[in-house]
């Protein structure tokens, strides 16, 4: 291992944990102390991560207020380290963190809103992919439909919640009407996140459509996903679901699956 690694690790501990820097750090500077220097790095470290979380979770910040959000991010940053040089990867564990975060226990819907925001964040940075070519699909002989494996666009996510998170999310978007009177008991919501003309959109799916999409996301064939969905949701209509999902750029491509 490189000697360099010892210096970097000591420096990292000073930044992340506030420990004394290594003896190989120059301790005397003209205009400030080494403690100030470390504090500047500590501030940069925490500030960058806080700003990243604020960028990814603007609705959470609005819902809990700036001060509470700062408390929350401080705890989160202490618990979850960054693992990527790309800051946009930081903050994935927020929904689970909030679910276990004692001071936020009263806000039961908060973890699911965080999951929805993370999905939007990932959708924004997702790779491009061609959307489903309906013409090509039409050329598949009908007897092969059940074996079709549909591919989901990389920007597509589904977040299912007991709470009306889609309505909550929409009420906190720039330019929203300001109607925050959302009945928490108004029922479950299936938030579909996708990208249309490069804009991340959040729409609501019915239970049946969501169950079917979840099956497709899991890689089950069109026939199997449809049969399973119909067992639980007899009203499920494949054609309607397909039209809606194609319109939302959810489906990317298909293949014929494994031969029987």
């Amino acid at each position: 291992m490189l000697v360099l690694n010892d210096d970097l690790s000591d420096f990292a501990r000073a930044i992340v944990r506030g420990e004394e820097p290594s003896s190989r750090v120059v301790t005397s500077y003209q205009n400030y102390s080494v403690a100030i220097a470390i504090e500047v790095y500590r501030n940069n470290y925490r500030g960058n991560l806080h700003d990243t979380l604020a960028g990814a979770y603007p609705v959470i910040e609005q819902l809990v207020g700036k001060d509470f959000f700062r408390l929350l991010t401080r705890q989160f940053i202490g618990q979850y380290f960054s693992r990527s040089g790309n800051l946009h990867h930081y903050g994935a564990e927020m929904a689970g963190f909030i679910a276990a975060f004692e001071p936020a226990q009263g806000l039961v819907y908060l973890p699911d809103v965080a999951a929805l925001e993370w999905a939007c964040h990932c959708a924004y940075f997702a790779e491009d992919a061609a959307t489903l070519d309906i013409g090509k699909l039409a050329q598949v002989p009908p007897e092969q439909y059940p074996d079709l494996i549909l591919h989901i666009h990389p920007a597509c996510h589904l977040v299912r919640s007991r709470y009306p998170i889609t309505a909550i999310w929409h009420a906190h978007q720039p330019g929203a009407s300001g109607d925050f009177h959302i009945d928490l008991d108004s029922g479950a919501s299936n938030a579909l996140i996708s990208r249309k003309n490069d804009v991340v959109v959040v729409s609501a799916l019915t239970e049946g459509d969501a169950a079917w999409l979840q099956g497709i996301q899991a890689g089950t064939s069109l026939g199997e996903a449809t049969a399973t969905t119909l067992e639980h949701y007899p009203d499920f209509n494949l054609q309607t679901a397909l039209l809606k999902l194609v319109a939302q750029n959810v489906l990317a491509n298909f293949n014929l699956g494994a031969a029987p």
Binding site: D7, A12, V16, Y41, N48, S82, G85
Partner: peptide, 12 residues
């Protein structure tokens, strides 16, 4: 561990 900053090191 990644520290998302631009950090100096000893020039050896």
């Amino acid at each position: 561990l990644v520290i998302n900053d631009l950090l100096p090191f000893p020039y050896t």
